[in-house]
Design a binder for these strands. Structure first.
Lengths: 225, 225
DNA sequence: GCAAGCTGTTAAAATACTGTGAAAGGCTGG
DNA sequence: CCAGCCTTTCACAGTATTTTAACAGCTTGC
């Protein structure tokens, strides 16, 4: 699930946006000022950041510059009450991906967030992931455990990738099927079990302790025990 | 150099935009209606398409749908005179990357085009590239492996060039096809495989280890293994 | 401790993907 | 207009991957 950080000092607006975007199926976290925002970014690594331009303590521009300086690639959507073209231009040229002029209608915000998400989905899932000695690089399509490369077929790779994007969590079978296989017709065969088997075999061949645990009656979880 | 296609039935505006963007160092092509636009896309494969919403024959929305249906990934910037939110929302939701309300100030258009360009990875393709003993100079149209020159046909050269601009990465077939051949109609022939074969033959004739590896089910990657 | 329901394992069948040679089709410069 | 190179197509062989299916093994609640 995609994570969005909303940063605005207007608490009422903040709550409203949070409701709206949560309803859209996004994981929403909030911050009321720039400093808080940076902390939240550290904690949640949102894919999208909605930033109010004018705020006490540290304004939106500053937050953005700080983030970009840290090489953060999240998509940034600036909210601004000023509608002078120079400012919009300034915002876009200095690293924002989009902006919206207050006041705006919620559906428009939703539309823009979706537009950004469409763009970010390409990036989002292509960053290397690491967990408990496992390392997986989607761009290079390579995976390794404890430094030694793993030879995975496309489906095995996707499955492991999905697990690694949700470590420690219990993933229901239907959830895994829809996300990795793209379908989930109720009473199907045992493809998933077979593939978990394949993965376990490859991961544990070197005597490595089990990482993919089965949660009886529910699904599986990637964790160290 | 990045290519931009501007599509608008207002010839005066068209000329103005062309001047402005040409001045920004972009290669600008134009079209006055939807049908022409599709032809131009075929001919030039622009990275960015600036589309007027309302046009005779085939309107902007239609053009966009057509392009997206063909799996064209160019960035699309919609121009619209209507400012009703529903329309903007519709535009963004259905695949545009950005939009601008007429009338707009040229600097703002420039800013937005730059913002989109930043996203488009098309850097300068004219610089010599080197990777793992391979050397390729686009300007001189010469390539060599370990110091000995390679005799490549134009397509072989472009393909190798594309690989070298994205070393180590896995490149999907459709990605390669759109970038090297300029098209990617769904179920086509196996030109790509054939050309990979040609390249491999020339690269490995001297006993040099394989550089172009196939990633089954996905595409190919240039890397040392 | 035992049935009933889950889950794991295996092997074989079905499917999908890739590499290759050969030939047809295009294009270009002479 | 022709020759020669370049590009694309086609058919098929050889593999790798995915799915199916049958059954063995394990858990759990009673």
């Amino acid at each position: 699930m995609a994570t969005v950080l909303i940063v605005d000092d207007d608490v009422k607006l903040l709550k409203m946006l949070q409701r709206t975007l949560t309803y859209e199926g996004l994981l929403v976290v909030t911050a009321a000022n720039g400093l808080e925002a940076l902390k939240q970014v550290d904690a949640y690594h949102p894919e999208i950041i909605i930033l109010d331009w004018m705020m006490p303590k540290m304004d939106g521009m500053e937050v953005m510059h700080q983030l970009r300086a840290e090489n953060n690639r999240a998509f940034i959507l600036m909210l601004t009450a000023r509608d002078a073209i120079e400012n919009r231009v300034e915002g876009l040229e200095s690293g924002a991906d989009d902006y919206l002029i207050k006041p705006f209608a919620p559906p428009e915000l939703v539309a823009r967030v979706h537009a950004l998400l469409r763009r970010s989905e390409n990036k989002d899932n292509k960053l290397p992931v690491t967990f408990a000695g496992l390392h997986l690089d989607p761009l290079a399509h390579q995976a390794s455990l404890g430094g030694t490369a793993l030879e995975l077929t496309p489906t095995e790779f996707d499955l492991l990738h999905y697990f690694m994007r949700h470590p420690r969590q219990v993933l229901e079978r239907s959830q895994i099927l829809t996300n990795v296989w793209g379908y989930d017709f109720g009473g199907e065969q045992n493809v998933l079990e077979v593939y978990v088997g394949y993965l376990r075999k490859k991961l544990e061949s070197s005597g490595h302790p089990r990482l993919i645990h089965t949660i009886r009656g529910i699904g599986y979880a990637l964790r160290v025990e």
